[in-house]
């Protein structure tokens, strides 16, 4: 057994697993999105764009296609909530990461450990916790009633707001870590220089600290935005069945006897959105490097 050969067979298992369980199956998903829905569930192979047309148009009983915005609204709401989640995560992560970076040396690892810890706790338990807090007769409602502020509020669950809280809570550690890494590298003398040049704290924050921590924010944005686009648990448990996102729309299409080609078409759409986002991000990073 020689090291030379190891270069080939050392990578072979990784390639084989990814090819057989990801690359090939994604190709099959593409083909299924072009198939037609079978009479008894499942699908019949073919080359049809009906599933993609279904995203935009609805066929009435005459066979006429009429524009329907319902799926576009779901795609739009998914993009909007994922963007909002990413922005809120960045807004919370910047001051928190800055404060942690300013903490005395021996405290830093402890604080970073505390930020990471909730992320290790099962996702479903963390989402469930928000049901107890936001739900009917939940912690928030009880507290408000105890203070005599309200007598009875409708459930805070099953709203876009509940989903947003759940998404931010789920993914915030993925934003804090890269932002912290950027801020920690930041040269403190630049902040002092800005101050010496009569820059106020806020001007310094906006013109010095923010631009220098932007690489971390962008890295965090990828880590938060991509899983948010495909979120399933938060829309089902916190958004209720009514407020759909792309993730649970795809999931419901693959339940027994639903529409697999349509589900595959939505999955392909999601994949294309993610690829566009990653490409824009890579272009931005390259431009930034060229100008920086």
């Amino acid at each position: 057994m020689r090291l030379r050969d190891f270069r080939l067979w050392g990578l072979a298992p990784a390639w084989a697993i990814m090819a057989l369980t990801l690359i090939l199956p994604i190709g099959i998903v593409l083909l299924v999105s072009l198939a037609t829905r079978g009479a008894y569930g499942g699908f019949d192979w073919g080359l049809s764009f009906d599933s993609y047309a279904k995203i935009l148009f609805e066929e009435d009983w005459d066979g006429n296609l009429a524009f329907t915005p319902q799926y576009l609204l779901i795609i739009g709401r998914t993009l909007w909530l994922a963007t909002l989640t990413t922005l809120i995560c960045a807004a919370l992560a910047l001051p928190a990461a800055y404060t942690i970076a300013q903490a005395p040396g021996r405290w830093k690892p402890v604080l970073i450990y505390l930020v990471t810890l909730p992320f290790w706790v099962s996702m479903i338990v963390r989402v469930y916790a928000w049901i107890i807090i936001l739900g009917n007769d939940g912690v928030i409602e009880k507290t408000l009633r105890g203070l005599g502020l309200v007598t009875d509020i409708g459930s805070l669950l099953f709203t876009d707001g509940a989903m947003l809280v759940g998404l931010v809570y789920s993914y915030i550690p993925l934003m804090i870590l890269p932002v912290f890494a950027s801020i920690e590298k930041l040269d403190g003398s630049l902040i002092e220089a800005s101050h010496d040049l009569y820059g106020s704290r806020w001007v310094t924050a906006r013109r010095v600290i923010l631009p220098l921590s932007l690489p971390g924010v962008m890295a965090g944005a990828v880590l938060v935005f991509v899983p948010c686009l495909g979120a399933v648990l938060e829309p089902i448990l916190l958004g209720g069945g009514k407020t759909m996102l792309m993730g649970n729309l795809i999931q419901t299409q693959f339940g027994g006897g639903r529409n697999w080609p349509f589900g595959a078409a939505i999955a392909v759409t999601l994949m294309v959105l993610v690829m566009i986002f990653l490409m824009l991000n890579a272009l931005r990073a390259r431009k930034g490097a060229a100008h920086g």
């Binding site: 369980t21 990801l22 090939l24 199956p25 994604i26 099959i28 998903v29 299924v32 991509v226 899983p227 686009l229 495909g230 399933v232 792309m246 993730g247 795809i250 999931q251 693959f254 697999w260 589900g263 595959a264 999955a267 999601l270 994949m271 993610v274 990653l278």
Partner: peptide, 15 residues
């Protein structure tokens, strides 16, 4: 890591 998990889930389910 580059794809939302739901896409991978659908892919292996169909496979």
């Amino acid at each position: 890591l580059l794809l939302p998990e739901i896409v991978l889930a659908v892919a292996v389910l169909i496979l």
